[in-house]
Design a binder for these strands. Structure first.
Length: 111
DNA sequence: CAACTGACGATAG
DNA sequence: CCTATCGCCAGTT
């Protein structure tokens, strides 16, 4: 099929779908989303998607964290907001914003 | 149109 | 362990 409807890269489209698929009570990382979408180094695109379409596509942006298992935002710039959103989903977050990936990391089922 | 920006990641040293 | 650099895409200035 000719899939030339959207001008965005196929990669970008996949990123949005992966983020939309993150289940309740789980988290994933930028790199994992990028890798699942086809580019292990496309993590920055994930950042762009969240900024660009988090509200637009109603994406669970708070379930996306960095590969260290921590919140990347700084206190006063959304850090506390994200921390509380995660805790609302029964996810344990330390005061420093770190999460136990061994327990909560979600891996894309489509691999 | 060129340069910069954005919540990062992997690799190299 | 820490720092530096490249890679990735689209939007803004």
């Amino acid at each position: 099929m000719a899939q030339e409807e959207k001008k965005r890269s196929e990669f970008t489209r996949r990123v949005i779908e992966v983020i939309s698929s993150i289940p309740f009570g789980r988290v994933t990382t930028y790199g994992a989303v990028a890798a699942a979408a086809g580019n292990p180094r496309g993590a920055r695109v994930v950042v762009w998607v969240l900024n660009s379409s988090s509200e637009r596509e109603n994406l669970p942006w708070h379930r996306v964290i960095n590969s260290k298992g921590g919140i990347s935002l700084k206190p006063g710039y959304g850090f506390e907001l994200q921390k509380q959103l995660l805790e609302s989903e029964h996810i344990a977050v330390s005061n420093e914003g770190y999460i136990d990936l061994g327990k909560y990391l979600w891996r894309s089922t489509a691999r």
